[in-house]
């Protein structure tokens, strides 16, 4: 018993300080992958039941509204692609390397960490799909988090709302650069070290600033919900509401940025 305990402690130390055990972990994860898949069945069954019991009229209405949305999105995308092209041309003129072209891969959520203190989810894409540690993850609304662990078929994503996670962000209106830290509460991010005189107000959009070379530039991170400065304290208190539906999205996007220097897998320009 003492031997096994010491061995466990040694394993924990090695696992915490180095990545020597990542291979072992990834191998063991393959063994427990079926557990995730089966554990996800209640959710799947609920979705399926909902689909099966939707009436014909309901479906028709849904199709019509989706077609309308598609049309709107197409118009927006056309405008966007023109803007992207223009932007890239201007950047070419400036000799700047950053371009707004990222490839994405769609992944589905298969598990949520049962510990409420940890905001982590498991997705159904792994090293077989070229997912790598540190890869940014988005949903339709904004930045969700980053990959922290990969195995052949699944990977684990740390959400931006986790207490141990921070994102470098930028206020769109004033270009002010800040750090948004997770609080352990799904719908709240804390903005760190905000000056009392900073040009920031409620309703400001925060986008990823790209500093730190982890997240791509310009994806929405959150909306500022509160900005208060108590003169007796060195910094103002500012919080934001994440744009991404951190506890709702079932489909997420894995981003392959040009900076990550990888071959695109399934190409879709975003």
């Amino acid at each position: 018993m003492i031997g096994l305990t010491l061995l466990s402690i040694a394993l924990m130390v090695v696992d915490h300080l180095s990545d020597l055990l990542d291979e072992v972990r990834s191998g063991l994860t393959v063994v427990v992958t079926p557990v995730y898949i089966v554990a996800d069945y209640p959710n799947r069954a609920a979705d399926l039941a909902q689909q099966m019991f939707t009436s014909r009229d309901g479906l028709q209405e849904q199709v019509i509204s989706l077609e309308e949305q598609l049309l709107l999105m197409k118009v927006k995308t056309e405008k966007m692609s023109a803007l992207t092209a223009e932007n890239n041309r201007l950047r070419d003129l400036l000799g700047s390397a950053a371009k707004l072209q990222d490839n994405v891969l769609v992944a589905e959520l298969v598990g949520v960490d049962p510990d409420p203190n940890k905001h982590e989810v498991v997705i159904d894409k792994g090293t077989q799909h070229d997912v790598f540690v540190g890869q940014p993850v988005l949903d339709a609304e904004g930045l969700m988090g980053q990959v922290i662990e990969v195995s052949p078929l699944t990977s684990r994503v740390l959400l931006i709302s986790d207490q141990s996670h921070s994102v470098p962000v930028q206020v769109v209106r004033s270009n002010l650069r800040l750090i948004a830290q997770g609080t352990g509460v799904t719908r709240q991010l804390d903005l760190m070290h905000v000056q009392g005189t900073a040009d920031i107000k409620q309703g400001d959009l925060l986008v990823s600033s790209g500093l730190g070379n982890r997240f791509p530039v310009g994806y929405p991170v959150g909306i500022v919900t509160q900005f208060k400065h108590n003169p007796s304290e060195p910094f103002a208190k500012a919080t934001a509401n994440p744009s991404a539906m951190l506890d709702r999205s079932r489909y997420v996007l894995l981003v392959f940025t040009e900076a990550s220097l990888r071959e695109p897998v399934i190409g879709a320009e975003g």
């Binding site: 096994l4 305990t5 466990s8 915490h16 557990v35 662990e149």
Partner: peptide, 26 residues
């Protein structure tokens, strides 16, 4: 010993440090 092996699998399942649930289960 079975408890320890089980603990390692739970560690992988919940993404905790390898050996953490091992010790708890021991």
């Amino acid at each position: 010993f079975s408890a320890w092996v089980l603990g390692l699998f739970v560690d992988v399942l919940t993404g905790s440090l390898l050996g953490q649930h091992g010790v708890a289960f021991i």
